[in-house]
């Protein structure tokens, strides 16, 4: 049993490996122990919380919008059947073998010449100096009206913004759900 020299409170044990006792804590901090022992759960939580900067927020938003362009969210159900496929009889193998052969040959030549991703096509358009109007010039400008705000959880009009990530919410209930589920998740 040791008495803390800085504060009047009694502490129960001294354990130098783990900071358990208030006395040891006081020693290090050179602060009155009283203030240290008064812990606020709210403040502790606040200190842990990270606030996203505008760059990260924009990055998250971009990722969300990109996800809306995706064709599929699941894996190809036939992805691991590639080997099996070869053994299968083709549906029209006995009907017109010569044409399918011919098509395959054409297809190969075709793949090389015209296989371009959308991104490549846009780049090509940028370089080609085609006179406007073209794909790049015909997009819409910003709307002059201010952006409307909706709760990220329930979709109703919202009045508040999450401090950490900038998402909108409409009530404490929705904020709770937001903090438990989405806020600061998938930030990596």
């Amino acid at each position: 049993m040791v008495t803390c020299p800085l504060s009047t409170s009694y502490t129960h044990c001294v354990d130098l490996d783990r900071v358990v006792c208030g006395w040891y804590w006081c020693e290090i901090m050179k602060m009155p122990a009283k203030e240290q022992t008064r812990e606020s759960g709210r403040q502790k939580e606040l200190a842990q919380r990270r606030v996203l900067d505008s760059f990260t927020r924009a990055k998250r938003l971009r990722r969300q919008l990109e996800a809306l362009e995706q064709d599929n969210f699941q894996e190809d159900p036939h992805a691991n059947l590639v080997l099996l496929k070869k053994k299968l009889p083709q549906f029209d193998s006995n009907e017109d073998t010569p044409t399918t052969k011919k098509r395959k040959k054409r297809g190969d030549h075709f793949k090389q010449r015209f296989r371009k991703t959308f991104h490549m096509l846009v780049e090509e358009e940028q370089l080609s100096m085609n006179e406007p109007p073209n794909y790049l010039t015909c997009c819409m400008p910003h709307s002059p009206a201010p952006q409307r705000k909706f709760c990220a959880v329930c979709g109703f009009p919202s009045n508040y913004t999450c401090v950490a990530c900038g998402a909108r919410y409409c009530c404490t209930k929705c904020l709770g759900t937001h903090l438990d589920t989405r806020c600061l998740k998938w930030t990596a």
């Binding site: 969300q64 919008l65 809306l68 819409m140 400008p141 910003h142 709307s143 009206a145 952006q147 409307r148």
Partner: peptide
Amino acid sequence: HPSDISIQEKGISEA
């Protein structure tokens, strides 16, 4: 209102 999901463009009517 494409801006409802933060697509900063005019909507059909404005367009």
